[in-house]
Simulated assay, not measured.
Amino acid sequence: MRWIEWLHRWLGGSIGLLLALIGLSGAILVHRDAWTMVAHKQDAVDRDAVHIAARVAQAMADPARRPEGIVFASPGFAVDRLTFSGGAGAYTDQTGRTLARWDSQWQRPELWLFDFHRHLFSGDRGETFVGIAGLAGIVFVATGTLLWWRTRRSFAFRLLPKRHSHPAFLRHHRDLGIVVAPLLLLSCVTGTVLVFRPLASILLGPGATAAMRQAAAPPKVDKMALAAKLDWAAMIRAAHDRFPDADIRVLNLPRGGSGLITLRMKQSDEWLPNGRTTIWFAADSGRIVDVRDATRLPAQVRAFGLLFPLHSAAVGGLAFRIVMTISGLALALLGSLAVWSFWFLRRTPRRPAPRPQTA
């Protein structure tokens, strides 16, 4: 058991602060729609495909100023988000009127906070470090549970340590950790698998990674340039005709010379906020190239689609957002106190046992 205690302590002292910051930012982001400052976000969502088609045609009318992508209004955040090159963007209402513009993510707290939580402001490299932190969090939960089991008879739940002493901090850390362990495990497992997708084969069974890769791969077509003029409204109407009961969620222009315009839709059976039902259009003509129905994807792929909604509390309403908020705040508290107790809080030296006196 001593090596487990050593591993738990040194991991906590080394990476506890990073976990604390990830947990705190996650707890704040769970409520991002509520605190993002933009007008008309509480409006009713207009799901009419004709109106959405008109907004897309308006946004894409000028080839020199068209956005690279559009995330359409959703319940609780009823404004469209347009993204442009260089990190610029805008919010527009459901008539196409601009509500806010920015030239960099640093002008919008909801954007840079998400970038920190997912990438540590460092792109793919930062995302890898976040995944490593998630793996460390899983190890913390496992080793912490084993260490708590030895002292389970002295369990006493407290939000904060009883005294400013090393034994009090240790006891508080141990007992609070076991209470929130299931929530921490949920946050760390879902977050880690979202970063390190090959781990999905451990969680979802053999072959899951290959199935996910195949499901996410776009159709293979020859590279083609994006036409200056396309019938964007007709493309939206064609997508609606294919899936009349689905919500139109995200439109992305071709990336990396792929020659494909991507439209994502969300059907009622999907948990993923932006859905995984996908329609690809040819960039030069706007014709439909391929269609992928998320409800017909393999079971492992559909199960993987549940991880992000669980991690971000995009399902379950306010009750589940509160649950994941507790998880993030608990991780922040445990991580920061672990660093404090490991590096700055002095241990109380053990007093030697008195020697028996001899006559």
Rank of each mutant, 00 (worst) to 15 (best):
R2K: 15
L11V: 08
G16T: 06
L17Q: 01
L18K: 12
L18Q: 01
L18I: 07
A20E: 00
L21F: 03
I22F: 04
I28N: 05
D33E: 13
D33K: 07
D33A: 10
A34E: 12
A34S: 12
W35Q: 08
A39V: 07
H40S: 11
K41N: 14
A44T: 13
V45D: 01
D48M: 00
V50P: 05
A57I: 02
Q58I: 05
A61V: 04
P67H: 01
E68L: 05
I70P: 00
V71F: 11
F72V: 12
A73H: 05
P75N: 08
G76N: 10
V79R: 04
V79F: 06
L82T: 05
F84G: 02
G89D: 01
A90N: 00
A90E: 01
Y91D: 02
D93Y: 02
T95Y: 02
T95P: 01
T95Q: 14
G96K: 03
L99N: 05
W102D: 11
D103W: 01
S104R: 08
Q105M: 12
P109Q: 08
R118I: 12
R118P: 15
S122A: 15
D124L: 12
D124A: 15
E127M: 14
G131R: 08
G131L: 06
G134V: 03
A136Y: 00
A136T: 06
I138C: 14
A142K: 09
G144I: 03
L146Q: 12
S154E: 13
A156F: 10
L159H: 12
L159C: 07
K162S: 14
R163G: 11
P167V: 09
R171W: 11
H173M: 09
L176C: 11
V180E: 06
A181G: 01
P182E: 12
S187P: 11
S187Q: 13
C188I: 08
T190S: 15
T192H: 06
P198Y: 00
A200I: 06
L204G: 04
G207A: 14
T209L: 05
A210D: 11
A211H: 00
Q214W: 00
Q214C: 07
K223H: 11
A225R: 12
L226K: 09
A227T: 09
A227G: 09
K229R: 15
L230F: 10
W232Y: 15
M235N: 04
A238Q: 11
A238D: 10
F243T: 07
R255E: 02
R255W: 00
S258L: 10
I261Q: 04
T262S: 12
Q267R: 15
Q267E: 14
R276Q: 09
W280G: 07
F281T: 03
S285P: 06
R287S: 12
V291H: 00
V291L: 10
D293P: 00
A294S: 09
A294V: 09
P298F: 09
A299P: 00
V301S: 03
V315A: 06
G316R: 03
G316W: 00
A319N: 10
A319L: 12
V323I: 14
T325S: 09
I326P: 05
A330N: 02
A330Q: 03
S336I: 14
L337A: 11
W343M: 07
F344N: 13
F344C: 15
L345A: 13
T348V: 15
A359G: 13
